[in-house]
Design a protein around this nucleic acid. Structure first.
Lengths: 215, 215
DNA sequence: GCTCGATTTGACCATTTGGTCAGGTTTTCT
DNA sequence: AGAAAACCTGACCAAATGGTCAAATCGAGC
C-alpha cells in the first residue's frame, strides 16, 4: 500500500497496526498532556507509556504539536456532545438533569480529557480558539435560545442562559479538575458512582429549587 | 549584614533591594507558572519578565522549585482568606453573597493566581497536598459546620454543605480559568466590573431561589 | 518463499534548559 | 574613606529534549 512517507495516510486508508498504535499513542498523550500541559509533557515519556520507542512514535506523528492537535480534536467532540442532546421539546427539569448527568459522567470517566480541555483553555486556547468561536459558539447560541424560550414560556425563571450553562460546566468539570482537593476535603472520589449520584441529586436540587427554604 | 550566601536570609532580615527584587520575581513567576505550569515555565523567561538576568534571579531563588514554592505560599493565603470571613452569626443570604462576591473579585483581579492554583491541584497538588489536608480541611470543616447549623435552624435548605462550597468555588473560579472561552461565547470580560455585577446577581439568584418558577 | 512497502530501531544532532562559578560592581556601615 | 557584605554578570556546563536518518526487520499478497 502506498504511503506518503508518514504514517498519516492522506488517502484515509489505515493499517490495522496503524489503527492500534495511533490509538495507544493518543491515549498515552492524553494522560501526559492533561497532567503537564503541552510544554510540560515529554515525547519520550509518552512513547514509553504507549509501549514503543520515541522514534517509532515520531513515525506516527511527525511532531509533538501534531500529536497534541490530534488529541485535542479527538477530545472536542466528546466534550461538547452532551449539549447537543438538550431537547427543546422536552421538560426543562428532565432535560437539564440529563445534561448535568452526562457532563458529570464525562468528568468521572474521562478526567484526563476534562483536565486537558481545561488546560488548553487556561492557556488562552491557542489551538482551539477557532472551535470555540465557531462550532461551539453556534451550538451554545442555539441552546441559549432554547433556554430563553423556556423562560419566556414561564417554564423556568428568567436567568441569563449563558451563565446557567457556565454554572453547569463549572461545577461538573470541577469534580474532574479538582479531584485531589475534593478527595482531601471529603474523602470521596468522583469515580465512585455512589458519590456521583449524590452529587447529581444535590446539584439538581440546588439549581432547580435553590437554597432558601420554601416560603 | 551577614548573609548565608543565598539571598534568603534565614534570620528573617531583608534588604530593600531584596524586597523589591523578590516581589518582581514572584510577580513574573506567577504569570509564567499560571500560564505554562511548573514544568512548562522557563526560568530565563521569568527572569526577563522580572527585568533581570537569569543568574541574578537564581541569586534570589536557588532553584526553580524554590521559586515555585514561594509563589504558591504567597498565593494560598489570598486564595482561602475569603472563606474565613463567613460569619456564623450573620444572615445566610448576606453572608454567602458576600463570600461569592469576594471569590468573584479574586478571580477577576488575580486571574493568574486563580489559574496557578487550579494548575497545581490538577496535577495532583504535589506541593500543597499538606495544606489541603491540613489548614484548608480544618477551615472547610468549620464552615461546613456553620452551614449545617443554618440548615438545622431552617434558615437554608438541607443540602450537602461541601457541595455547596464546591459549587461556589467552581463557578467563581470558572470565570478566571475559562476566561477565553467565556469571551469567545459571550464577548464579555470578567475584568469588566459591570459584567461581574451581572454574574453576581445571576449566580446568587440561581443559588438562593433556584431555576424553577415560584409555584 | 519472494518482494516491496510498512514498521521499527538506535545512533546521532542542534538546541534548550536549569544551574554553577569566579570575579566584578554597588551599597551600607563605621 | 574604606572595608565588608550585598548584589550582579557573563561565561560555562551537564543533562534533557524534540527531531532526523539510514538501515534493519516485519508482514501481506503474489
Amino acid at each position: 500500500m502506498m504511503m506518503d512517507g508518514s504514517a498519516t495516510a492522506p488517502g484515509g486508508t489505515r493499517t490495522r497496526i496503524q489503527e492500534r498504535n495511533r490509538a495507544r499513542i493518543l491515549d498515552a498523550a492524553l494522560v501526559a498532556f492533561a497532567r503537564f500541559g503541552y510544554r510540560g509533557a515529554r515525547v519520550e515519556q509518552i512513547a514509553e507509556a504507549a509501549g514503543m520507542s520515541k522514534s517509532n512514535l515520531l513515525y506516527y506523528f511527525r511532531s509533538k504539536t501534531e500529536m497534541y492537535k490530534a488529541v485535542l480534536a479527538a477530545l472536542l467532540e466528546r466534550w461538547l456532545a452532551p449539549l447537543r442532546t438538550l431537547d427543546p421539546e422536552g421538560d426543562p427539569r428532565a432535560e437539564l438533569t440529563a445534561y448535568i448527568e452526562q457532563k458529570l459522567r464525562f468528568s468521572a470517566e474521562e478526567p484526563e480529557a476534562s483536565r486537558l480541555f481545561a488546560n488548553e483553555v487556561m492557556q488562552g486556547a491557542p489551538m482551539i480558539r477557532d472551535v470555540l468561536e465557531g462550532p461551539l459558539k453556534e451550538l451554545v447560541d442555539e441552546k441559549t435560545g432554547v433556554l430563553r424560550r423556556w423562560a419566556a414560556e414561564g417554564r423556568i425563571r428568567d436567568v441569563d442562559p449563558h451563565q446557567l450553562i457556565f454554572l453547569i460546566w463549572a461545577t461538573t468539570q470541577h469534580y474532574a479538575d479538582f479531584a485531589p482537593q475534593i478527595a482531601a476535603l471529603t474523602g470521596r472520589e468522583v469515580a465512585d458512582p455512589a458519590y456521583r449520584a449524590e452529587v447529581l441529586k444535590t446539584l439538581t436540587a440546588l439549581i432547580f429549587d435553590g437554597l432558601l427554604p420554601p416560603a
